[in-house]
């Protein structure tokens, strides 16, 4: 399976599989940018009643759905196994039991057809969703914000990821879900807070964690606790806050720190492009704020459409294009890992 460098083509067709959390996803991507198919079987309805993702349940659903989802991805793309050049899969990070389903399915499919197996890092996947929109301009900066991650990643060149900042406690999306729960909004609460925030006023002063000067790290647990305490104390005193105002005030604190740190990092590293990806990139408030900051600058701003920001396999196929070109293949002993350094 060793491919000589001169033989490596760049319009390869990759079947990509992603099962790191609660979406069973498969996609067929050509040349790292053309989406031939993108299938996502969401389990959200199954987990909603529990107020969050139940790992064992997610793994069970993945096992039930995996071959159906992959089959649909091939059918939608109009390709057969003989058309494929490689199979890519999310190797981590994520829920380990969930990752194992995708990893073992990908290994079995690749083995059955003698195809190279390409391991992909979930965050690299989120970041590379941007190349499904437009080509990269380096150096670039990626803000990855989701239920599990909040990171600022510098890309000096293709596939070279340097994490310059990350959350020290909760991910931004996690804070959204917890605040939503304390406002009695159903899971997942992020989109609902975003919607309420548009109808509210930022009249409640919630803290913003700037951390040490020059740090690109984030912290959202203090903000989360401040919101929960404020609501608790108000209830004790018989005070009432409008949900809309709580949402707007909380969201302002999150967005301000995200956009400001992104702006500072973009200036310090002189980047040509900023991309915002991950589930929270669907947030309208965040999108608008990023547009306001970068619209009249030389920096190109890329925020992929919602379907490419939440977990999907198209982004894994896009990231796998870089593995393909660099000929980075996994052996049959590839395993899913809950923690995995960005590659």
């Amino acid at each position: 399976m060793n491919i000589e460098k001169e033989q490596i083509k760049d319009d390869e067709i990759i079947l990509a599989i992603e099962t790191s959390c609660d979406e069973t996803a498969a996609a067929v991507i050509q040349g790292g940018s053309s989406i031939l198919s993108n299938v996502v079987a969401s389990q959200i309805e199954s987990h909603q009643r529990f107020g969050g993702v139940v790992p064992e349940l997610a793994s069970r659903h993945h096992t039930e759905n995996i071959t159906w989802v992959v089959e649909e991805a091939l059918t939608d793309a109009g390709v057969i196994f003989a058309d494929l050049d490689a199979v890519a899969v999310t190797a981590g990070p994520g829920l380990v039991g969930a990752l194992l389903v995708g990893v073992n399915a990908a290994k079995a499919i690749a083995f059955a057809h003698g195809l190279p197996l390409l391991p992909v890092h979930h965050i690299a996947g989120h970041i590379q969703a941007a190349r499904l929109e437009r080509p990269w301009h380096y150096p670039a900066l990626a803000l990855v914000v989701s239920g599990g991650h909040t990171e600022l990643v510098l890309l000096k060149d293709e596939g070279e990821y340097e994490v310059i900042g990350q959350t020290r406690d909760d991910a931004a999306g996690e804070a959204y879900d917890k605040v939503a729960r304390s406002l009695n909004l159903s899971y997942p609460g992020g989109p609902q807070i975003d919607k309420l925030a548009r109808e509210g006023e930022t009249i409640i002063p919630f803290p913003i964690a700037w951390l040490e000067e020059g740090s690109y790290d984030f912290s959202f647990s203090g903000l989360k606790s401040a919101v929960i305490n404020k609501l608790h104390n108000a209830k004790q005193k018989g005070e009432v806050f409008r949900k809309e105002d709580v949402a707007a005030s909380f969201q302002r604190s999150v967005i301000e720190v995200l956009t400001e740190k992104t702006k500072r990092a973009a200036a310090q590293y002189g980047v040509k492009q900023v991309v915002v990806v991950g589930g929270v990139a669907a947030n309208k408030g965040l999108r608008q704020s990023m547009k306001d900051i970068f619209s009249n600058t030389e920096v190109e701003l890329t925020i992929p459409p919602l379907a490419l920001c939440t977990d999907n396999a198209a982004m894994i196929g896009a990231a796998a294009h870089i593995q393909w070109k660099k000929n980075i293949q996994a052996d049959w002993n590839l395993n899913g890992k809950a923690d995995l350094a960005l590659f």
Partner: peptide, 19 residues
């Protein structure tokens, strides 16, 4: 073992489906 069973079943069904 839940995880053990899933590894075997996922591998078997994915390989069988692919073939």
């Amino acid at each position: 073992s839940y995880t053990g069973v899933r590894i075997g079943v996922t591998t078997a069904k994915s390989m069988a489906w692919a073939l």
